[in-house]
Write a protein that binds this DNA or RNA. Sequence first.
DNA 1: ATTACTGCAAAGCATTTGCAAATGC
DNA 2: GCATTTGCAAATGCTTTGCAGTAAT
Lengths: 162, 162
Amino acid sequence: MSMNEQDLPEEVRESVEEAWPLFVEFLKKKDARVTQARKIVLTQVFSRHDHFCADDLAAELSSGINHVSRGTVYRTLALMEEAGLVRVIRDTDVHAHYEHTFNHPHHEHMICDKCGQFIEFSDDSIMEHIDQACKKHNFSERTHRIVVFGVCASCQQSENTD
Amino acid sequence: MSMNEQDLPEEVRESVEEAWPLFVEFLKKKDARVTQARKIVLTQVFSRHDHFCADDLAAELSSGINHVSRGTVYRTLALMEEAGLVRVIRDTDVHAHYEHTFNHPHHEHMICDKCGQFIEFSDDSIMEHIDQACKKHNFSERTHRIVVFGVCASCQQSENTD
DNA sequence: ATTACTGCAAAGCATTTGCAAATGC
DNA sequence: GCATTTGCAAATGCTTTGCAGTAAT
């Protein structure tokens, strides 16, 4: 591997060190190969990204020593989703957003109409009510998503100063 | 208008008769024009469609007496969304789904992984908890969406018969 | 008459795919 | 050595747009 893992910020390196073996295990179970490109993508996902889109990630990896092509980024992201290391959010605009799920328990989002900021929240009783609704409809839940659209606190303030 | 409104099923005609004046009002307020194409699209939206995508609607209007072009369908749907007559659901695949909101109060969706069916449900206490979460984050809610992914009752049954 | 809307076909944009070369096993 | 993966560029599929002609006010 030509990557300099020492150069990564500590908490990124820690996440990669925990997540990468999980991905390796997943790939082996699938009889897929453990490649350098896949490690570079995984590392980039856990670097400086709370929410990101595939294309931005691809752009970041389009040049330099850790070059990975656009196509491979999309393919790897799909694998990581299958492995449960990443989650897709397909609500706002045309392109899908991702977030990593490792050490990042299930939560919901508020998205600000003005600045596009994602605010995370979670509430156990909402989950319970969803469970109940599923039982009522005999629906077997795999996962769910809640998104609240509106205006965040700081954008409300700047509205008032206009 | 060249449309034969008598040919429509009763409940469709009723919806159109209620929704169309609202759209007209909206258009006038916007200094936009009340056109035949816009009435055809609105009528088609309220005909035989629970959930539909823009492209299917465009295909249905691509020939015959009530012809409307693809571009105009997309443009009109955007106007109807702005007017609050239609709601967009952008969760599953690449293309957005729509549903009409007229006489159709806010509700949430379960989407079946197997058959793609949309099941509607609603639960007041979920709304309350979302309200609370918004207050806690000083977030001013415009709207929200809840989607549950999983397998519907009938697909579970056919799984068992395999 | 004026200005907006429509149809058409071409452009856009995120994403996917085919294929020859490269890489992991 | 053989099969999978990669990179690239071309294709895809939904959606948007520019423009000349058409319809609404």
